[in-house]
């Protein structure tokens, strides 16, 4: 088959749908539907949820007359605020991905983001669920018993079990989605490297991955030791 043939066949191919300016206008206005599917939506959603949790905890601290409870809620609120700032920083990295770059550049940027900052984000995103359930339990105790025996509350394994389950479900379900995206993008990157006869981009990405892995370990350690420290202080109080 000659070159001309493929081109002549292609010239006959007409897309099955055409849109009028009115339809284009309708589609453009429905952009929230697209936003809902993006990683950007997840990040924004998390920022909103963290803000709600912080507000709920601060409100509890204001309304409560129990000093130890005030310290607990304000400490968790402060911790959540730090998480919120980190997530906001991740959002600005997401926004900096330029979709108008070349395909190679775009895949590289997305891979770096997904492998690095977005993976870190998933920890903070799942922690929101942990904090949400934990805060819910505190509210439940206050509403039901008017006050809260913090020592009994913090040493009850069930108070941790459900938040941990909430964390795990959220983390692993999202992680699977991201893992698949990373696999697809890595395949595309390898396809490009086969053309370019170069492993340079993979090398750069691997270096970045190592760096991000270290950062992630530091973040997890900070969260863990922060929470342990918090519990210890409360137990001493």
């Amino acid at each position: 088959m000659e070159k001309q043939d493929i081109h002549s066949i292609w010239d006959q191919a007409k897309p099955a749908a055409e849109y009028s300016p009115a339809q284009i206008n309708t589609y453009r206005k429905k952009q929230y539907r697209q936003v809902k599917r993006s990683q950007g939506f997840l990040i924004i959603f998390d920022i909103i949820m963290k803000s709600i949790i912080i507000a709920a905890l601060v409100l509890l601290a204001i309304l409560s007359e129990q000093k130890d409870l005030q310290i607990l809620t304000l400490s968790i609120a402060a911790l959540s605020l730090i998480f919120l700032v980190i997530v906001a920083n991740i959002h600005s990295s997401y926004k900096s991905i330029n979709i108008g770059n070349s395909i190679m550049e775009n895949i590289k940027e997305r891979l770096l983001f997904l492998e690095g900052k977005f993976n870190t984000f998933l920890i903070f995103y799942s922690l929101t669920n942990f904090l949400l359930v934990f805060t819910g339990f505190i509210y439940y105790q206050i509403i039901k018993y008017d006050n809260i025996d913090l020592v009994a509350f913090l040493t009850d394994p069930f108070m941790y079990l459900f938040p941990i389950v909430a964390f795990a479900i959220s983390y692993f379900s999202q992680h699977q989605v991201v893992k698949q995206q990373i696999t697809d993008l890595t395949e595309a990157m390898h396809e490009l490297e086969d053309m370019d006869n170069s492993k340079y981009h993979s090398y750069i990405i691997n270096k970045q991955k190592e760096k991000q892995f270290r950062n992630r370990l530091i973040a997890i350690s900070l969260i863990f030791f922060g929470l342990v420290f918090l519990v210890l202080i409360l137990l001493i109080l």
Partner: peptide, 8 residues
Amino acid sequence: IIGISEKN
């Protein structure tokens, strides 16, 4: 568009 050389 792709980000590779013309030769490739």
